[in-house]
Amino acid sequence: MMAGSLILQTGTRLLLPLLLLFSVFLLLRGHDEPGGGFIAGLVAAMAFALYMFAFDVYKARAILRIDPRNMLGIGLLLATLSGVPALLQGRAFLTSLWWDVEVPLFGELKLSTPLVFDIGVYLVVIGTVLTIVLALAEAEE
């Protein structure tokens, strides 16, 4: 694929971290406000897709560091594992568990198995979209 314009490349360099940060923000606030793993995953995946258009597939793969197919696996593993702690407590699979952790200087931190589950969703969505998009773009060449 042809390299994109200089303007797009410069803009994307700035936009990629911002979009990824925004996707993490959407992911974390999802339990209370609009957002969540699915939406956040789409935003992150599209940030990388934008990068791919601006530069090329190889640069996009390089900056992604991890193969999106592996991301699929890790996401599925996380989502599945998040159901296990409840099993260990003798409750139904995927029953949500919550822990309040006091972090110094930071305040209260709410940790929970649904959060782990949502991170799994996030990774699976990024993995799915990028697996397809990158493969399509590579087939182009």
Binding site: G30, D32, G36, A79, P114, F117, T128
Partner: peptide
């Protein structure tokens, strides 16, 4: 412990459905 009902349904109330959908997606 969540105010966003859509998300609570997805990751908690009906998490097993979502898990199944994740596998379909993958």
């Amino acid at each position: 412990y969540g105010r966003n009902i859509v998300n609570v349904i997805l990751v908690d109330f009906r998490a097993l459905d979502t898990l199944g959908e994740l596998f379909v997606l993958a």
